[in-house]
Design a binder for these strands. Structure first.
Lengths: 246, 246
DNA sequence: CGAGCCGTTGAGGGGATTCAAGCTCAGTGG
DNA sequence: CCACTGAGCTTGAATCCCCTCAACGGCTCG
């Protein structure tokens, strides 16, 4: 949890602090956990939610630690890791803007994965007890919560069917396709390190490197400094079709 | 949905029909969705829940179809399948006794996977609207629901880290370990067909066959007629340790 | 500048796939 | 009754994809 945490409460009254209107004006509000709450609801919660910023590779929480809060991703990518006791880790899922992570906390459970920032990440940290309170009063919240849970479940299952199936090249292409969904304005995606690609797709760094290089030569991918790249979406589609996978 | 469905309502008053006390006396009640409801709650629901029995390979529901109900597994195993448009399917998760399946229905969503019976399966079919009603009145239910969702999510993620990681033999051993958790009294497990093992572990039928035969020769597995087998748990543990995976 | 991390590329070997054949067993119909 | 068939399982041989082992270059940083 080596992050810059701004515990400054977020007040909503006009003018004031630059983050005053943060919750109400939050860009992801409509897709985020509290998006369904009205302003009255917001008044009750905005003082307890902490805004956080994490650097790449900073951990949001550790597997096994007590779950005291859930997090909404305002910006950036987070990966979920598990490692077997003999050392080799596997990345089992990634989450992005608008996703809710650490739901286990709502059940008073320890976190089931290591959650690590891929890019710089902006989070809202929501204490477990706060959600409990809200869940009692209104009932818009449970549904929204269930939605998050289902979304995470779906993501986990399609991780199996897309990223753990077939030859290495196809798996990589599927990964790129998925990363493209979190792309910036200019088709700039976050490109994992080679060993991270390996942990995601169950392959060695060497294989990951070879395949990335191949895609670079084919023009599907153009590397840019700092773990990022530009994707040619058309070429990617073509490559996927050539794999016999749409 | 080619099943024997007993739409006979399940009444709770004493004596009466053999299934009269079904809900109240349900063996899996403590672990099932409505386990937390008291008798009053049960009175309100038992008439709307249908008891079903499905034969092996019967489908519970199809991916994409309208989700009108969730199901509790009273007995047996259910697998979740996805198939890409060029034909090859992948089994992404299995669920067993006490698990809730088809939660998407609660969100008014189509089912995200094909759900297919592995063994003979006994289900309780719970209409979506019924859960909605209950969720409004009491609030024990939402928490129980969240628990199910989290359990499914955890299962999906560990499917990636256990069954989609490493060499074929280790993946198969992990699968057996998992199937052993659903074993009958005598360590008799449901053993998938070779092509089903292939769909679970992303390998060919031939590889699956070779590995199963090898384990049979090593005494880890003893085949018995009808897609089942007896496991030597000690030998399994030993084999897993030899793989460098606990 | 050397150390270390990260990425790349090559050579060789091994594990899984592909292609192929043969087996058992249940169901079918001559 | 028994050949015939097809589905499921097994085994073999050849191929290939990916891993292992290795070396090297670029880069940052102490």
């Amino acid at each position: 949890m080596d992050a810059r945490v701004q515990t400054i409460p977020i007040y909503r009254q006009a003018g004031a602090h630059p983050q005053a209107l943060a919750c109400a004006a939050c860009e992801v509000r409509s897709t985020a956990l509290f998006g369904v709450l009205d302003d009255v609801g917001l008044d009750r919660i905005h003082t307890q939610i902490a805004s956080m910023t994490l650097a790449p590779d900073a951990t949001v929480y550790d597997r096994g630690s007590a779950g005291l809060a859930v997090f909404t991703i305002r910006e950036g990518l987070v990966r979920f890791e598990r490692s077997s006791q003999h050392g080799d880790r596997r990345i089992v899922r990634i989450a992005g803007r608008g996703d809710l992570i650490g739901q286990e906390a709502l059940l008073n459970r320890p976190y089931t994965d290591d959650a690590v920032a891929c890019t710089e990440v902006h989070l809202c940290r929501i204490p477990r007890v706060l959600v409990d309170q809200l869940a009692q009063g209104r009932d818009a919240l449970p549904r929204e919560l269930m939605l998050r849970w289902q979304k995470a479940l779906d993501a986990a299952e399609s991780w199996v069917s897309d990223l753990s199936t077939g030859p290495a090249r196809r798996r990589l292409l599927h990964l790129l396709e998925r990363l493209a969904q979190h792309a910036g304005a200019d088709d700039a995606i976050w490109l994992p390190r080679r060993d991270e690609i390996g942990a995601m797709l169950d392959m060695t760094v060497e294989t990951a490197s070879r395949l990335v290089s191949a895609l670079r030569r084919e023009g599907v991918l153009t590397l840019t400094p700092g773990r990022s790249a530009v994707l040619d979406r058309v070429a990617l589609r073509a490559a996927l079709l050539a794999e016999g996978a749409a």
